[in-house]
């Protein structure tokens, strides 16, 4: 699914890590961990094709063009925008070629899955951070992408929301989609996923999560 060779990324002229070579199979679930500013979010943007890499080769193989979807962090999202939650979620169907009735059903289904059906007519300004996060996840669900890139998806979610999130992540994986999750909550990640990519300025390590604990730069959270 993803193959990169000597990949470097970050602000122009300042790569954040030594070159990264990595292969991730389709249908894999991978965590990305590391210090603040080690390049986790930028790596997701590079993988999503929203930011060019500084050097190296990157191959993201999807069946369809543009088959990746990114859940960015919430900062910078205009909460005052005069829009209802339903319309925000519906924008996930942008590329959908389905007939109107199907799209409508998919939308209702996504709202129900993330337990926000009751909030559908609320303006964005009246949503809490966690409700907005659920809406953004529902929109991501509707994108029907093969590669899902989640940047701190647990942010602002309550315990119920986090349980729901990991249920959906594992369901996506079971459907054969590839999922990458940037997360800070290392302590409980180990129960959620097997492999993780540790990023640091001294080198990147891809390994099972329990082996990463012995890494010298592991002390990140």
């Amino acid at each position: 699914m993803i193959r990169c060779h000597a990949l470097q990324w970050g602000p122009a002229g300042r790569p954040l890590t030594p070159p990264l070579s990595l292969e991730l199979a389709a249908g894999s679930l991978t965590g990305i961990i590391g210090h603040n500013g080690c390049g986790k979010s930028s790596l997701l943007k590079v993988l999503a094709g929203l930011q060019p890499p500084l050097s190296g080769r990157l191959e993201v193989r999807c069946q369809r063009p543009g088959g990746s979807a990114l859940l960015p962090q919430q900062q910078g999202f205009d909460r005052q925008f005069p829009l209802r939650l339903r319309e925000l979620v519906a924008s996930g169907l942008w590329r959908s070629q389905q007939p109107r009735a199907t799209r409508q059903r998919q939308l209702e289904q996504a709202l129900a899955q993330w337990q926000i059906s009751a909030l559908a007519e609320q303006p964005l300004a009246e949503l809490s951070g966690g409700q907005l996060q659920r809406a953004l996840l529902a929109r991501l669900e509707l994108c029907d992408a093969e590669l899902l890139l989640l940047d701190e998806p647990e942010a602002a979610l309550d315990a119920d929301g986090q349980t729901l999130l990991w249920q959906r992540v594992h369901a996506w994986q079971a459907q054969g989609r590839t999922v990458l999750v940037v997360s800070h909550g290392l302590s409980h990640l180990s129960t959620r996923l097997d492999n993780a990519l540790l990023l640091s300025a001294h080198g990147c390590v891809y390994a099972p999560l329990n082996q990463l604990r012995s890494q010298p730069h592991y002390q990140v959270a």
């Binding site: 999503a48 543009g66 990114l70 829009l83 925000l88 924008s91 942008w94 590329r95 929109r139």
Partner: peptide, 15 residues
């Protein structure tokens, strides 16, 4: 235009 105004990054990822 609506989507480019609300969330340009998302629009860029789908179109």
């Amino acid at each position: 235009l609506l989507l480019d105004t609300l969330d340009p990054l998302f629009l860029r990822s789908v179109s």
